[in-house]
């Protein structure tokens, strides 16, 4: 059997080998499914979240690592991959909102009313039930329900209609165990359009309901 010569390079190799065995490889967060979470964490950090919202920012980063771990495992827990990534994004958005005083906006795509009415169509239930889940997961957030119309009709009519629609959504949430004292409803009428009112597609985008989490 050949004797091993203990030379300085051998010592260095042993030390390096032991060091690498002790220090785990870092989790890879630089993967595309985590782009959104990373982007929001960076935005929150740039807004000073490590000082003004340290717990939320830490939650975001912790969830990012957890998500990276879930993705590194492959498809062992596919639900947890998306859940942890979404949790990281949500926490970072909240940290950013807290540090910038901007409310976190959740657009309720899929809430429909009868024409010229505040009567919610049954097709809205899936979207509203998802919103309820989000609000139950964010118990400390107060929420403004903001409704908007397109520009057809008079501005005073649109203001009134949007307020009635915001009230209808508030009532739905309240009837599904979201505390009334967390909810305020506000109609903005045709103000704050997000698309051109010159086209049907644009007007459809402008008719919307948003939750502003504060």
């Amino acid at each position: 059997m050949r004797a091993i010569r203990i030379t300085p390079p051998f010592l260095a190799a042993c030390a390096a080998a032991l060091l690498s065995a002790c220090v785990a490889a870092p989790l890879n967060t630089e993967i595309s499914p985590l782009n959104d979470a990373r982007t929001w964490i960076a935005k929150a950090k740039a807004a000073g979240a490590e000082q003004c919202a340290p717990a939320l920012q830490a939650e975001a980063v912790g969830q990012l690592y957890a998500a990276a771990h879930e993705y590194a495992e492959g498809n062992v827990h596919p639900d947890e991959q998306t859940e942890t990534a979404a949790a990281a994004t949500t926490a970072a958005k909240k940290a950013y909102a807290k540090c910038t005083n901007h409310p976190q906006v959740m657009r309720l795509t899929g809430v429909y009313f009868d024409t010229n009415s505040a009567h919610l169509k049954s097709a809205s239930e899936a979207t509203l039930n998802h919103a309820i889940k989000v609000l139950k997961a964010n118990k400390k957030s107060d929420v403004e329900i903001a409704a908007y119309t397109d520009s057809r009709g008079s501005s005073s009519y649109n203001l009134k209609l949007s307020k009635m629609r915001a009230d209808a959504v508030r009532d739905y949430l309240r009837n599904h165990n979201i505390a009334a004292n967390r909810l305020t409803a506000k109609g903005y009428g045709e103000s704050h359009p997000i698309a051109s009112n010159a086209s049907a597609a644009g007007r459809s985008k402008n008719r919307r309901v948003e939750l502003h989490l504060k």
Partner: peptide, 15 residues
Amino acid sequence: SHDYHAYLAINLANK
């Protein structure tokens, strides 16, 4: 501690 690193350390320790 209300330090960011403290919150993150506790979060990771819980994980």
